[in-house]
């Protein structure tokens, strides 16, 4: 369980966010929904310790921690695969940097390749496969971190619309099959509705959570579920108002 209290980050004296609170129970899929440039990536960088927080407390599993850098796995909209390594070597990076039983890691990665439809492509280089396959390889790498908490930073926004739809259900596997706790940021309303247990709408500069939606629908969900469409209309309505005020 992740608890963020009173987190603040200033940039040139201006708060990107301050007094930011978040409560993420174990096993839950939460989505922060907001326009580009509202400080979502700064929030993730602050949570992971890439930049220092200016105030606030982060608690993970009941223990206060300085940041989540060595507790979470991170997936970015860029696949961040290394072009000089095969897909398999890329997926094994977390195991290689950590050290330890490489044979076991290779077995595990092999199974994940198969599960995510990458079987047979283990020795391909990233430039030899499609963007969707690269992002799936990044997903395998994310799972190979072996961490319970996963931060997703617009993980599918670099993919074209058709490929993105096919990959949304794979993100859902992180929760349903691998039991991860997930915090995702996105500006894609449909993606949020399909995947999230809780959706938080964000206001920009300073960033605050101003409205929460918790669509209590079983997953996988359908785009055209009337309840979902109803929530969508509500969210779009709020986003519009939020933009005006």
């Amino acid at each position: 369980m992740l608890q963020v209290t009173d987190l603040a980050k200033y940039y040139n004296g201006q708060p990107v966010f301050s007094g930011f609170d978040l409560h993420l129970p174990a096993g839950r899929f939460q989505v922060l929904l907001g326009p580009s440039g509202c400080g979502k990536t700064t929030l993730f960088n602050t949570l992971t310790g890439v930049t220092f927080k200016d105030a606030g407390a982060i608690t993970w599993q009941g223990e206060a921690v300085p940041h989540l850098g060595n507790l979470c796995a991170y997936m970015h909209q860029k696949d961040l695969l290394l072009p000089w390594f095969s897909l398999m070597d890329n997926a094994l990076l977390p195991a290689r940097t950590r050290g330890g039983d490489m044979a076991a890691a290779q077995d595990r990665a092999g199974q994940l390749f198969f599960r995510l439809g990458l079987g047979g492509y283990e020795s391909h280089r990233p430039d030899q496969v499609s963007g969707g396959m690269r992002q799936r390889c990044a997903l395998v790498r994310t799972l190979m971190f072996d961490r319970d908490l996963i931060l997703l930073d617009e993980p599918l926004s670099a993919l074209d619309a058709i490929t993105r739809q096919r990959h949304q259900h794979l993100l859902l596997l992180l929760q349903t099959e691998f039991g991860k706790t997930i915090l995702m940021i996105t500006h894609d309303v449909d993606e949020a509705l399909l995947l999230a247990d809780d959706i938080f709408l964000l206001t920009p500069m300073p960033m605050t959570l101003f409205r929460r939606f918790s669509p209590a629908l079983p997953k996988p969900r359908a785009f055209d579920d009337p309840k979902l469409l109803h929530t969508k209309a509500e969210i779009l309505d709020h986003l519009e108002k939020g933009g005006v005020s």
Binding site: L80, R96, T97
Partner: peptide, 24 residues
């Protein structure tokens, strides 16, 4: 820097990051 962040989050020590990322 985004690749650096990835390696930082993997907890990679400097010389491993050097061999796997910076040098190539």
């Amino acid at each position: 820097p985004e690749y650096r962040t990835l390696f930082t989050l993997m907890g990679s020590p400097f010389f491993k990051t050097l061999a796997l990322l910076y040098w190539p």
